[in-house]
Structure formats: structure tokens, C-alpha cells
């Protein structure tokens, strides 16, 4: 056995026992490094006939070392991969650590959801002033001064002459939209804040959000209004939703209705949350009054229209089971964090 062979055997047994890659690297440098143990034979010291054999022995030893280094490295890698389950096990049931993200307010989310459905139906979102003139908020909507119907909407006034009011509904936007667009067809969705001079409690706020939709076109009927409200309700809730029209009165529509949707809890059979009759009050609607069309500069002989609206908070309350309206505007983080 040559010296080379002996050195290689000794090295191979060390390599075979090396516990990790770092030790292998240390052994590589020890044996094969520039100043390593295994160095090429000094040919000048050898007889010409020994040179070839020595060269071959050296190459053989070197290659065998390289091979066992690579083999051992591969073996260690395979063993480590096989060991991962134990060596790097973590407790996957510990709580996740979310990045610090904020949230959109639930009213924004619900309002956008409503707008999205309306936009999908071809309605254009329009916004307008919250401080309105008496004309837009009342007169133009067939609510003359002193009229008892104004009692339906307790009003905040901003001057003593009562010409400036906080709008009591989004309906002044009906007039503004008609005047802005001129010739029908007009399909508009009008969300925004409205104000009522009413004491605040769990189901009343002095300020809240409404959204109202207006359609003015040729040949619009009560049937179209019914279909539209139904389409919307089914899109917002689900396809099972049915809509019921109860005749009612608003000065700016004729005929007028309250619309109910079949109860979201019991589906219409009657339960506690719908008061037993299977229906939930959802909003008001009607065919735009001819006087209102005229105030919007639209000829009621050529065109007809409908308007329907409801409270955004009410939808959010039904959707998320919120029982106190005030929570929406208090912004307690313990409330906001639930969305």
C-alpha cells in the first residue's frame, strides 16, 4: 500500500464519521487544501520509472477523497432533510401574528356594497350638499311651507328665516340630478348624510345615512319599481328575498309605498326579529310626483319615474346584528375590530 493509499484510507474513515458539513470542509482543507496533507509526489526525488506509478497513486487517492467527501455531504444533507420533522418542529397552534393593518369602517363597506349593486344596475352615483335650501329640501319636493307633512321630518334650521336647513333626506338630490342631467334617461344613486331633529337613542340618531335611487325614463311603471327593489334586495341579501309593497304617503311620490323584505332570520314564516309577521321594514319608495318632475325641469307628460331609498345603518344593523345605532358613530375599537 502506498503512502497515498494509507493517507486516503485514514481520511475516508474520518470523512465517514464527520457529523456535519463544517467538519467535512475542515477535513477537505486538511487533506486537499493548498497546504494539505495530500500533496502531489515530488517527481524530482523519484526515479523516472517510479514517477508514473506515484502520479497515478496520488490521483487515485485524491479522487477517492473527493468522492467520499461528496458522498458524505450528500448523505448528511439527506439525513438532515429526513430529520426536519423533529429538528425544526414548531407549534402550529400558537396564535398568528398579523401585520398591523387598519380597517375600513363598516358603514363605508356597506355603502360601497350598496353602490356597487346600484352601479351594476346602471345607476350613476351622485352626491350633493348637506346644508340645503328650503326649496330643494322641501318646496321642490311638494312640501310647501307650513304643510303638516313637514312634521314627518323634524328639521334643523341654520338661520332664523328657515331658508337654510340640514337636509332631512337625500331627496333634494332628485331635483339636483334632474336639473344637472336634463333630458332623461336618468338613473342615479344618491347616498349621503341626512339630519333629523330627533332625540338620540338606540334606534334614532340626529344624523344618519341614506341612499336613494332615482329613475326617470319613458314608460316607467310601479311594476318597474317593484322589480328594481326586488332585484336590489336579492342582490344585497340572497335570491330567496321577497319584497312587499305597502301603500303609504310621501309628498314627493304618488303612488307611495313602504317596502318590506321577507325576514332574514325566519325567511317569512314569522319569528321574534320580524315581530311575527315575516316581514322587515326596509325603506320607502314611489313614483316621482308630477310636480317634482316639473321642478326638475322634466315633462311629466312624456316621462315618468320612480325613487326608492332606505337607511344605510339599517342595512348594516340587519346584516351584522347590530342592535344600537350609536355604535356606528362612537368608533369604539372593540366595535370596529369586529369587522
Amino acid at each position: 500500500m502506498s503512502d497515498f493509499e494509507q493517507t486516503a484510507a485514514e481520511a475516508r474513515s474520518l470523512i465517514a464519521q464527520a457529523p456535519h458539513a463544517a467538519e467535512l470542509e475542515r477535513l477537505r482543507i486538511h487533506y486537499l487544501g493548498a497546504r494539505g496533507v495530500l500533496v502531489p509526489p515530488d517527481f524530482s526525488q523519484l526515479a523516472p520509472d517510479e514517477r508514473q506509478a506515484a502520479g497515478r497513486a496520488y490521483n487515485l487517492a485524491k479522487r477517492s477523497l473527493q468522492e467520499s467527501l461528496a458522498g458524505r455531504l450528500d448523505e448528511l444533507r439527506r439525513r438532515r432533510l429526513a430529520d426536519l420533522a423533529d429538528s425544526e418542529r414548531i407549534d402550529v397552534t400558537l396564535p398568528g401574528q398579523p401585520p398591523r393593518l387598519g380597517r375600513l369602517h363598516v358603514l363605508t363597506v356597506v355603502q360601497r356594497e350598496i353602490e356597487t349593486i346600484m352601479e351594476r344596475m346602471g345607476y350613476q352615483v351622485e352626491i350633493g350638499p348637506e346644508v340645503e335650501t328650503d326649496w330643494y329640501n322641501f318646496e321642490a319636493l311638494n312640501l310647501p311651507r307650513g304643510h303638516a307633512s313637514r312634521d314627518m321630518q323634524e328639521t334643523f334650521f341654520l338661520n332664523r328665516s328657515e331658508t337654510l336647513v340640514l337636509r332631512t333626506h337625500t331627496s333634494p338630490m332628485q331635483i339636483r340630478t334632474m336639473l344637472k342631467h336634463g333630458e332623461p334617461p336618468i338613473y342615479a344613486a344618491m347616498p349621503g348624510r341626512v339630519y333629523r331633529q330627533e332625540a338620540t337613542d338606540a334606534s334614532h340618531l340626529a344624523q344618519f345615512m341614506q341612499v336613494e335611487a332615482l329613475a326617470v325614463d319613458v314608460g316607467i311603471t310601479v311594476g318597474d319599481l317593484k322589480g328594481t327593489v326586488q332585484y336590489f334586495s336579492q342582490s344585497l341579501w340572497d335570491e330567496e328575498r321577497r319584497v312587499r309593497f305597502r301603500p303609504s304617503y310621501f309628498p314627493y311620490t304618488e303612488p307611495s309605498f313602504e317596502f318590506d323584505v321577507s325576514c332574514l332570520v325566519c325567511g317569512g314564516r314569522g319569528c321574534r326579529s320580524c315581530g311575527g309577521d315575516g316581514w322587515l321594514e326596509a325603506g320607502g319608495c314611489g313614483m316621482v310626483h308630477p310636480a317634482v318632475l316639473r321642478n326638475g325641469n322634466i315633462d311629466p307628460e312624456r316621462y315618468s319615474g320612480f325613487a326608492w331609498g332606505f337607511g344605510i345603518e339599517r342595512i348594516a344593523m340587519l346584516k351584522y346584528g347590530v342592535e344600537d345605532l350609536r355604535l356606528f358613530y362612537e368608533n369604539d375599537h372593540r366595535f370596529l375590530e369586529q369587522f
Binding site: T108, E126, D217, G227
Partner: peptide, 24 residues
């Protein structure tokens, strides 16, 4: 009004206004 059939408005039209996103 339960007897009124539900329909959707709309008819073939040759002019329209392009949709624009709301400010919100």
C-alpha cells in the same frame, strides 16, 4: 299591489351617458 308583476325598466336606446366612478 301584490298583483302588480315585477319588471325591470329599460329599453333599447341610441344615446347614453358614460359611467364615471363616484368620488367616494
Amino acid at each position: 299591489y301584490d298583483n302588480v308583476p315585477a319588471t325591470l325598466p329599460g329599453r333599447r336606446r341610441s344615446s347614453w351617458r358614460a359611467a364615471t366612478p363616484s368620488v367616494e
